[in-house]
Design a protein around this nucleic acid. Sequence first.
RNA 1: GACCCGAUAGCUCAGCUGGUUAGAGCAACGGACUUUUAAUCCGUAGGUCCUGGGUUCGAUUCCCAGUCGGGUCACCA
Length: 496
Amino acid sequence: MSTDELNFVLKARREKHDALIERGIAPYAYGFKRTHTAAAAIAALGDADEGESVRVAGRIVAWRGQGKTSFAHLADDSGRIQLYFRKDELGEELFETLKLFDIGDVIGVSGALFRTKTGETTVRVASAEMLAKSLRPLPFGKEEVVDGVVVRHSGFSDPEQRYRQRAVDLAVHPEVRASFVARSRMVSALRAFLDARGFLEVETPVLQPLYGGAAARPFTTHHNALDIPLYLRIADELYLKRLVVGGFDAVYEIGHDFRNEGVDRTHNPEFTMLEWYQAYADYTDMMLLVEQLLVAAADSVRNHAAYTAAVPVLEPPFPRIQWVESLNAALEADVLAMSDAELRKAAVRADVAKADTLSRPKLLDELFQAHVERTLHNPTFVVDYPMELSPLAKPKRGAPELTERFELFAGGKELANAFSELNDPLDQRRRFEAQARLRAAGDEEASGIDEDYLRAMEHGMPPMGGVGIGVDRLFMYLSGISHIRDVILFPTMRPE
RNA sequence: GACCCGAUAGCUCAGCUGGUUAGAGCAACGGACUUUUAAUCCGUAGGUCCUGGGUUCGAUUCCCAGUCGGGUCACCA
């Protein structure tokens, strides 16, 4: 881009950049030795009025020139600190150079700490270095503190631009950075929880020749050298269970799954899934583990002041309700005895979309969603799903038309899905074949037959419990953040 | 996917039933100011009014289509 094409704001920045070079000042440095972060410097002064000399670095976020002095605020990861520049201390030349500094520039300064007459901890700047000249202005709003609360004026609020330009959003919104810190700490807490219980974190393929473990439409790609189609995984499940066959008795993975479906408040095409599998455990053991893990995750989020009030109080044990009984009660009928046609009629009455095209399992699922799921706000385990909805779960002991499966619902959303994992290869084959028939009949989300997975199971798969938890949604539930794009750093968007 | 809403200066926004040269605050530029903090004061500059059609003497404004986004609902075990 030539200078002529830049608008006046960018042009002014570029001219200052060139002027720095003319004065022999490199606009982009290689580093800066800091002695303190902004927060550490403020802590170092404590209650004193004069303090030690510090070296701090960060971005200029506010500037108040006042003739032969200037005040500025410098922001780093820890917070912000005020800078005080005086011509008589800096000398003519450096003070003149300050005119080439802009809001948004990254600078490093050194100088003694002191307290201004209004009480603010400030660095009396003795020297200042340009570390990165900002050629494009950042839309910092002005901030004032009213009754201890930061009020921002004229900031950067256009939602589209905030998500498209997340670097800018993060740079000007410390509270957005803080939300992602809270998320990251929660994920660390999940890892710590599982690590402490003997689980091994593993990584399984994102690129898979067959996709399975869930019902969803995949992203498809192609490997050139092998000349084969590959799918981005929709779940980790089938690979993790192969590892249990291999002798890893307790494994987990935190990674991205990909589902080629709609984008909305609670769905992003790529999202973070936690799955774990524990040999010799069943779904009742998994319920206890999920309860404890949720409590640990909630404690982690509660540690962040901004979310303390939002975190729900979790008091295990969570209520358990039976899938069939709760739907029967809602419909005043025996759902599993109903014919496909009767189910379809009930679905139409419940305003289920496209009820005439749905397979029996989908009809059951839709009816359950319409009549039961959306009423579940406090954490609740829904247990014992119909066989036809759960092709990877073991039959329920004493009720073979059901499976040992539960889902955890909270805030009206599914947070977890778990089974006593089916480990009978002959039964698994029959279930896959039933799925394949549904698929042939037009159910796009039904799985096919995964021969490689069956072969692993035929070698002998220990009984195990397994759980999947949507990490984005878990954090949303615990933090009270209502939109998934606010918990994903770079949410999927249509290109401009 | 359905319905509703939006797109105007770098940012946040105003712009009436269509009418001369599209405005404000912040940011920018010039000036004053040695403890300010949404600093203040004086001045200057800054626009493809999302795109394409249409109606009209005349469209940022009205109509249609499109693009992108937001909200609500539906869907995605």
